[in-house]
Simulated scan of single mutants.
Amino acid sequence: MTVWLFRAGKQGEFENKFLEDERIYLTWDELNIDLRGIESKETLYKSLVKHYDLDKEKTAINWASQIWPIAHAMEQGDLVACTKK
């Protein structure tokens, strides 16, 4: 079992939604990429660069490093801790 730490948005703006729904969400604006179809972190990185028209390579690398484990490593039964603002 793994414990995951989540922030509910940059300023905790999704905190109530997370708690009320008893779910966590990816809160990137307009993230409408089907993550199940992405087979590697590098492919995810390239998809983010294209989708968001990113000039800064480090931004896409950072985002891919955060998104990848949620989509491909998180399992039912893992624990989630959500920080409070």
Rank of each mutant, 00 (worst) to 15 (best):
M1C: 13
M1R: 08
T2S: 09
T2Q: 09
F6R: 00
F6M: 13
R7Y: 14
G9S: 01
K10H: 10
Q11V: 13
Q11C: 10
Q11R: 12
G12Y: 05
G12Q: 08
G12E: 06
F14A: 10
F14V: 02
E15A: 10
N16K: 14
K17M: 11
E20A: 13
D21S: 14
D21N: 10
D21M: 08
E22D: 10
R23D: 05
R23M: 06
W28S: 11
W28E: 15
W28Q: 05
D29W: 07
L31P: 08
L31W: 01
N32C: 11
N32G: 04
I33N: 04
R36T: 13
E39S: 14
S40Q: 05
K41C: 04
K41L: 04
E42H: 12
E42K: 10
E42S: 05
T43Y: 13
L44A: 06
L44K: 03
L44N: 02
K46N: 13
S47I: 02
S47Y: 11
V49Y: 06
V49D: 02
V49C: 12
V49W: 08
K50V: 02
H51Y: 09
H51D: 04
H51M: 02
Y52S: 09
Y52Q: 07
L54V: 02
D55N: 12
D55W: 14
D55E: 15
D55H: 12
K56N: 15
K56D: 15
E57Y: 06
E57K: 14
K58I: 05
K58F: 12
T59H: 14
A64F: 06
S65D: 14
I67Q: 02
I67R: 00
I67N: 00
W68T: 06
W68V: 03
W68L: 03
A71D: 10
H72Q: 00
Q76D: 13
Q76I: 13
Q76M: 11
G77T: 07
G77V: 04
G77C: 04
L79Y: 12
L79I: 12
A81T: 07
A81M: 13
A81V: 13
K84E: 15
K85L: 07
K85I: 10
